[in-house]
Computed example of a mutant assay.
Amino acid sequence: MKRPILATLGTVFSAFSLMACMAGEAPQDVDQATGEEVVSEAEQAIKNGTPATPDEAMVVSVWRDSNLCTGMLLSPSRVLTAAHCLTSTHTGDYTVTYAGEDRAISQILKHPNVSSGVDVGILVLSTAYSLGPLTEYPQVNVADTDGLIGREVTCYGYGAEDVGGTCTSNADCATGFTCITARHRCYKPTTTLRKGDFTVISDPDKDDIWFRLDVLNASGQTTLPGDSGGPCILENTSFGTKHVVGVHKAGNNTDMSTNTSREAFAAWVLAND
């Protein structure tokens, strides 16, 4: 079925091996003036991010055993994520979770130009989600990356908790945390979805395939391990629509965060709807 992916059916490479799943969230402090949750340094998806609800951009968590990535529902049965999260060819190795409901996988698709840097894949769910009549999926449109430069986007992720410690092996980390040797820091998965607002800047290497986020932003936010595959969403306030413009690819937790641009993947996604 070929159609634009806007449905009204109802309302870093950063995916690292994160070896223990959280049993629950620690209690959070609340700002007495605003009533909003205060995000601690050790409780982070998007670093210092604002808590988000999955239905804001149809965001899911993607699990391969205990390894965590993020994704976005394109429809009740298809999930957009990063191809580098899809390291296994066995569908039984993956579970997708949306709003507390788990789904198994029936098919794994990877963009044909993954080797050229188009780090995007699609997971087909064995059983579609049952979603209410006002659900909106962010649109996928074919458009040049140049038009995004300087625009503000909201990016989502189920990134890892950062215990704040440096490491060279798991022995250096607290119980339940894993040493991500590429970053020499200790992390573990989180069940908390967070978001941040970022300005799109040009990628110096492949500006027609990738774009970068201007990080850290004014709120000290950036992406973390586990945010891979998470969507960056552009709001079209004139028409009240949301557009997925990027899929998180990689970051270094300080001053670099790279996304695969819709320019590189939109036509393929639309052809595989």
Rank of each mutant, 00 (worst) to 15 (best):
T53N: 05
D203K: 03
S88K: 02
V269S: 11
A42D: 13
T223V: 14
T168G: 09
G176H: 02
L148S: 03
L73R: 00
G230I: 04
N170F: 14
T34N: 02
D208G: 02
I209W: 15
L9Q: 06
S257Y: 04
R3S: 14
T192G: 03
P138Y: 05
N236C: 06
A104W: 07
V140I: 10
G220A: 06
T168S: 04
A160S: 11
H84Q: 02
D55Y: 00
D65W: 09
V12Q: 08
V142L: 11
A20D: 06
T260H: 08
G117C: 06
G220H: 03
C179K: 13
D146Y: 08
T81V: 07
R185T: 09
L193R: 11
V38S: 08
P112V: 03
V120E: 05
D29P: 04
P4H: 02
L131F: 04
R3G: 13
K206P: 05
V245T: 15
F239K: 15
R262L: 12
A20I: 13
V200H: 09
N170Q: 04
A52S: 07
E263M: 09
L193V: 14
Q28R: 07
K242V: 04
C155A: 12
E152K: 02
F265P: 00
T166I: 13
L86E: 13
D162Q: 04
E235C: 03
E56G: 01
S238K: 10
G220E: 11
P54R: 02
H111V: 04
V153K: 00
L131Q: 03
A15Q: 07
N236E: 10
D255G: 03
C232N: 04
C21W: 10
Y158K: 01
H184I: 09
K206E: 15
V244H: 14
L68F: 12
G164V: 01
G240Q: 05
